[in-house]
Design a protein around this nucleic acid. Structure first.
Lengths: 337, 337
DNA sequence: GGGCAAAATGACAACGTTGACATTTTTGTT
DNA sequence: AACAAAAATGTCAACGTTGTCATTTTGCCC
């Protein structure tokens, strides 16, 4: 492969002069610069990032550690946000997946360390509190879609599930609904609990009594292999003697099954029953007819801004706040009357 | 950071001896080996892959180029297959996304070249014929979920849409259906055309006449911003004077909307109408009630076996065949009577 | 005990860059 | 024309590994 030495010889200058041209350093005579650039083009020289790293210890590579990809494959959006930031900022991305395995994770951190990456984003596929297994690896790290256990000081960026659910509940209440069903996500999910808490708080603030709300558990068991009772709970809710006029779902996939239950029971959405979701998983929310009213998890922004935060950490900047929380805006579509 | 020189000094041996221990080379006295390993542990030494690459020109890094992630985010599964192979084979993965932009793609290949990666997988998010923009980059490359234009000699691995659709159609026919609707994917998709061709061939083989099949166009326009007519076409098909008894859909997302149309029309699945999809996008196929009968695209296997093929190409092995095609098995669930 | 071969270990330079500093050339001012 | 400063370019060693070959040590056989 063509090296800087080859270019220097062909251009009649020193290696250092070629390096200056490649790196855009100042004080290179324009004629020399053009001659060197011509040779680079002719010989097809591409700098060796490994050699550069060995000499300067400056890495332009970031690592992404993902835990596992759940059945709602949002990792695409978080990872895409990171990638787009990386591309805009001249960074390359190493990707590794732990599949939730601690030993694998430790191995991944070691591999990243052996690549001397500049920093890493630890991306959780669902909102939770974690403790990454960096061991004594000192890679600058930002947690995405999760936050650290109290003993750990990693900066993080996560969604505001509580605010989103609270706003969405108020949206439903403001439309006049007074009998509301709620099908909850697996309680093991932090986001699930936040969303439910916000729902409870909002209906309490609106003066609804316990008999006005009907909360059902839709998913339970170990994450990744949950028991799904959504469909049957939705059927039960909708065909009761005093059914709700609005059904709030822990996420869009739950809403999806609620739709099937409603339609199967001959109900019209939103005439007979309003249904709302959470997360704005567009594969579902836009495919449903009518389109789903929901609160949007800012996945892309979590990735993009998480990467930006990592850059600041790598550069030694003191972050204004360690834990950033991004809002989940209500997206009003046709499913809520 | 701790280097091999530090370890050598602390262990009282030469750099080369430490290198022998780290790399598991033979002819190292057991006592020496243990002493060196102890020092490595104590000092927390992690080899520098960059230095290793500079000296030996042997890379353990693979690149993944993805074009863009469509609204059915299967990239997770293809990429996961690649990642799992990489992890099992001690490889690290660089990931870059072109978003379908030729200039971005050229830049990605250059970046990969600057990292001196061993090889790359070019992953298309939908089945198609392509010509990657490697320029004169000579990186060993395998195409995944696509095949090369005739002028290009890249090995590839892709799904057998025709076989899957043919088998699925026969499955439907074998269940006695004789009036069959078909809602097709965007004709711009190679997979869409293959699936439709197979459907036509299978119904012709079964002796059905043109009046027995009703083919509708569900999606059209530029990929990524298609016009979606699935729901209305499904409604039209299902509420006609002589509706089909089975509805075949170009993919699972089309099946999803077909379900909504059927349920909205008061039809029971599969009693009143059988519905089948294609690709086994489990976010949809398992969430539908009853669960969807479909043909499964082998995304994970495309990734995993694509990576394995790349390894053989990198190692200079002559592949038995340049273009591998993986079957799409029928997955019989409850939606087809 | 000596000699020879195998095992174990070390020396050295090389890979491709770049930081630090030196040297040469050019330009401007007196 | 001379001198000083700025611009341009070059020299050299260093980063952290490993391939190649040399040297030393050990073990076995006669």
């Amino acid at each position: 492969m063509v090296s800087i030495v080859d270019v220097a010889k062909a251009a009649g200058v020193s290696n250092k002069t070629v390096s200056r041209v490649v790196n855009g350093e100042p004080n290179v005579k324009p004629a020399t610069k053009e001659r060197v650039q011509g040779v680079i083009r002719d010989l097809g020289y591409v700098p060796n990032m490994a050699a550069r790293l060995v000499r300067s210890s400056r890495s332009l590579t970031l690592g992404i550690v993902t835990d596992f990809i759940s059945t709602t494959p949002y990792s695409g959006d978080i990872v895409r946000g990171i990638q787009e930031w990386a591309e805009e900022n001249g960074r390359t991305v190493l990707l590794a997946n732990t599949n939730g395995d601690r030993d694998k994770e430790r191995e991944i951190w070691r591999t990243f360390q052996s690549h001397r990456i500049g920093g890493a984003l630890y991306v959780s596929m669902y909102h939770r509190e974690i403790s990454p297994s960096l061991g004594d690896v000192a890679t600058p790290t930002v947690l995405v879609n999760c936050h650290p256990e109290p003993a750990n000081g990693y900066p993080s960026i996560e969604p505001n599930d509580y605010q989103g659910s609270h706003d969405l509940t108020r949206y439903v209440l403001e439309r006049g609904h007074r009998r509301i069903g709620y099908i909850r996500l697996n309680p093991k999910l932090l986001g699930a609990e936040l969303r439910l808490s916000a729902f409870r708080e909002a209906v309490r603030e609106a003066g609804l009594s316990d008999s006005d709300v009907d909360i059902r558990l839709g998913m339970e068991g170990p994450i990744g292999s949950e028991t799904n009772r959504v469909y049957s709970q939705a059927q039960d809710l909708l065909t009761g003697s005093n059914p709700p006029t609005a059904l709030m779902c822990g996420n869009d996939e739950i809403a999806f099954q609620a739709y099937l239950a409603a339609l199967g029971a001959g109900l019209r959405i939103p005439e007979d029953i309003s249904i709302v979701g959470f997360d704005d998983f567009q594969t579902v929310s836009l495919a449903l007819k009518p389109e789903l009213t929901t609160a949007a998890l800012p996945y892309y922004a979590l990735g993009y801004r998480g990467a930006d935060r990592l850059m600041r950490v790598i550069e030694g900047e003191k972050l204004r706040e360690d834990h950033l929380v991004l809002e989940c805006p209500v997206v009003a579509r046709g499913s809520c009357k």
